[in-house]
């Protein structure tokens, strides 16, 4: 199995006034392609910090971080932006859609920064919106959508550049349990189709759907558990995922 990401002795320090906050104190693990990882741990344990580093939003203080075979730990700011544009799909707790854009336009944004907006790609954006069950809401604004619907738009947006990873920081943190179930079903389907997913969560119900659970404590890995409850990868044929997408 090919390696999607390899994290080697990553540390991250924040300097606050004279004080140094050690958010990550040496974290190492590998993520093969197609993996489904949940990062869990107490508040302040460094989950978001780790995810942001994986998402190339920041540089680690030390250590190596390979995405594919490129060490991005020391990449330039512009290079990081290129990697984010081409290899990463983000899903946030608070959805983070751009309020003045329509559903369709929000999904198109990552393509815009890759200079890839063509009629063909636009058609694909529509398909993605349909896939997450929002085919009839293409021209609505985010404020006209429910939280669950907004998160579906965010997932469609994360998929539009066909990324290596989907990174999700507490994607269900703002949703009720029924909607959480729907959104997680979407993630499960995506993973079954081969997408690598790394998500941060507090909720055990969410975490147990992943194939592996990494527990952080005070900036270190406390444990990595293979989840026996995770559904095997090819339980469903690929196109069933589409058919099963909730309305």
């Amino acid at each position: 199995m090919r390696l999607g990401a390899s994290i080697q002795e990553i540390t991250k320090e924040y300097h606050l006034g004279g004080e140094v906050v050690h958010a990550l104190r040496g974290v190492s693990f590998d993520v093969p392609e197609g993996d489904y990882v949940a990062i869990m741990g107490a508040s302040g344990s460094g989950k978001s910090t780790l995810l942001n580093l994986l998402g190339c939003l920041d540089h680690p203080t030390s250590g190596k971080l390979f995405l594919g075979d490129e060490n991005v730990a020391e990449a330039s700011d512009d290079r990081l932006a290129e990697i984010r544009a081409s290899k990463i799909g983000f899903v946030f707790q608070s959805f983070n859609l751009i309020p003045q854009l329509t559903v369709l336009e929000n999904i198109e944004v990552p393509l815009y920064y890759q200079r890839r907006l063509s009629p063909k790609e636009r058609a694909r954006c529509k398909e993605l919106a349909e896939m997450v069950g929002l085919g009839n809401r293409l021209y609505h604004r985010p404020t006209q959508l429910s939280g669950g619907q907004q998160q579906r738009v965010a997932i469609a947006r994360a998929l539009v550049n066909d990324p290596l990873f989907i990174l999700a920081d507490e994607p269900t943190g703002n949703l009720d349990s029924a909607t959480t179930e729907e959104i997680m079903a979407l993630f499960d389907d995506l993973n079954r189709q081969g997408k690598t997913i790394i998500l941060v969560t507090h909720e055990y119900d969410v975490g147990r759907r992943a194939r592996r659970i990494i527990r952080l404590k005070d900036g270190r890995i406390e444990s990595i558990i293979d989840n026996p409850q995770a559904k095997p990868r090819s339980e469903l044929p690929e196109d069933v995922a589409k058919a099963k997408a909730p309305q």
């Binding site: 998402g55 939003l57 700011d77 512009d78 932006a81 290129e82 984010r84 544009a85 081409s86 983000f90 983070n96 859609l97 751009i98 309020p99 944004v109 990552p110 920064y113 890759q114 947006r157 550049n161």
Partner: peptide, 16 residues
């Protein structure tokens, strides 16, 4: 500010 953060996360460079 938030929108700028979103756009940066989605691949916008500083010059964009």
């Amino acid at each position: 500010t938030r929108e700028i953060g979103i756009r940066r996360a989605l691949g916008a460079k500083r010059r964009d």
